[in-house]
Simulated assay, not measured.
Amino acid sequence: MAFHRFRRLSRAVLLAALAGLGACTAASAANDAVALPDPALDPAPAAPGEQVAVFAGGCFWGVEAVFDHVKGVRRAWSGYAGGSADTANYERVSEGDTGHAESVKVLYDPRQVSYGQLLKVFFSVAHDPTQLNRQGPDRGTQYRSAIFYGNPLQRQVAGAYIAQLGAAHVYPAPVVTQLVPLKAFYMAEAYHQDYASEHPDNPYIAINDAPKVARLKQLFPDLYRPQESVVQVRLR
């Protein structure tokens, strides 16, 4: 069974199916955090005001949850990037042949968090950038690691950081993250938005995504924002 469909099964079925591997998966996830250097290149954006960043790193539920907990992030949305408008829906993207990646659009205030800091969070705790066309239990090009840059400065900063991480040999394998221009971001269906926060007892979330938020709190205490603050920001 394809895991993208496996994620949507009832809680009871998931609990039974994951009972044998949940403990080892969660234990492995808890040890996946990587201490990374700060980006050597991280200038202030040329234009004032809020900025947008788009990242892809496996199932968008977990990536969105991580960035929702970053101070300075105004909002994060799950969606699709890399393909065309007519295939930007969950059923088609899940087939793996649309060119889309499950992605997250991050609206942030650069006065509180820089693009370079978002990159550090992305590469440290949001996903494993050495996994090619997969992430954890999910397989397919729609789960690839990618940065969709919105302007030349983002391309420069992201490219420099990828090169910096490679030169520092911080991972046991090469970084496979794609760096591609953002042509369009398509919002995912409503039930995908805030999925992790609204379904914390879902076994998929508990095993694969909650540990990412816990690692964010552990590695980035100055950037971490608790759930209560996330709700307050959304209500503004």
Rank of each mutant, 00 (worst) to 15 (best):
residue 2 A to C: 12
residue 6 F to H: 15
residue 6 F to N: 12
residue 7 R to F: 11
residue 7 R to Q: 12
residue 10 S to M: 03
residue 13 V to I: 11
residue 23 A to C: 08
residue 23 A to W: 08
residue 25 T to M: 13
residue 28 S to P: 10
residue 29 A to C: 09
residue 29 A to V: 05
residue 30 A to P: 13
residue 33 A to Q: 14
residue 33 A to G: 13
residue 34 V to H: 08
residue 36 L to N: 12
residue 37 P to E: 05
residue 39 P to T: 01
residue 42 D to M: 04
residue 46 A to P: 01
residue 48 P to I: 05
residue 49 G to V: 04
residue 51 Q to A: 02
residue 52 V to Y: 01
residue 52 V to C: 04
residue 53 A to Q: 07
residue 56 A to W: 02
residue 56 A to Y: 03
residue 58 G to Y: 05
residue 63 V to L: 08
residue 66 V to F: 05
residue 67 F to H: 09
residue 67 F to G: 07
residue 68 D to C: 11
residue 69 H to S: 14
residue 70 V to T: 12
residue 70 V to R: 09
residue 70 V to A: 12
residue 74 R to N: 12
residue 75 R to C: 06
residue 76 A to C: 05
residue 76 A to F: 05
residue 77 W to P: 10
residue 77 W to Q: 15
residue 78 S to F: 03
residue 81 A to S: 15
residue 83 G to W: 01
residue 85 A to S: 07
residue 86 D to V: 02
residue 87 T to Y: 00
residue 89 N to L: 00
residue 90 Y to C: 02
residue 90 Y to L: 03
residue 94 S to V: 08
residue 95 E to W: 07
residue 95 E to V: 14
residue 95 E to G: 14
residue 99 G to T: 00
residue 99 G to Y: 00
residue 100 H to E: 00
residue 100 H to C: 01
residue 103 S to W: 08
residue 103 S to K: 10
residue 104 V to K: 02
residue 104 V to W: 03
residue 104 V to F: 04
residue 105 K to T: 11
residue 106 V to Y: 03
residue 112 Q to P: 11
residue 114 S to G: 13
residue 119 L to T: 04
residue 125 V to A: 04
residue 125 V to Y: 02
residue 127 H to N: 12
residue 129 P to N: 02
residue 130 T to K: 06
residue 130 T to C: 02
residue 137 P to Q: 06
residue 137 P to L: 07
residue 138 D to W: 06
residue 142 Q to N: 12
residue 142 Q to P: 09
residue 145 S to E: 04
residue 145 S to N: 11
residue 145 S to M: 07
residue 149 Y to N: 00
residue 151 N to L: 00
residue 152 P to M: 02
residue 153 L to G: 01
residue 153 L to W: 01
residue 154 Q to I: 00
residue 154 Q to E: 07
residue 158 A to H: 03
residue 164 Q to P: 08
residue 164 Q to W: 10
residue 167 A to S: 13
residue 168 A to H: 04
residue 169 H to Y: 06
residue 170 V to N: 12
residue 172 P to K: 09
residue 177 T to N: 06
residue 181 P to F: 01
residue 185 F to Y: 06
residue 185 F to K: 04
residue 186 Y to R: 11
residue 186 Y to C: 14
residue 186 Y to D: 10
residue 187 M to R: 15
residue 189 E to T: 06
residue 190 A to L: 08
residue 190 A to W: 02
residue 192 H to E: 05
residue 193 Q to M: 12
residue 194 D to P: 12
residue 197 S to K: 15
residue 199 H to I: 10
residue 201 D to I: 04
residue 202 N to T: 08
residue 202 N to V: 10
residue 207 I to V: 14
residue 207 I to H: 05
residue 211 P to K: 07
residue 211 P to M: 05
residue 218 Q to R: 15
residue 218 Q to N: 09
residue 220 F to K: 03
residue 222 D to L: 07
residue 224 Y to D: 04
residue 225 R to C: 13
residue 230 V to K: 14
residue 232 Q to W: 03
residue 235 L to P: 07
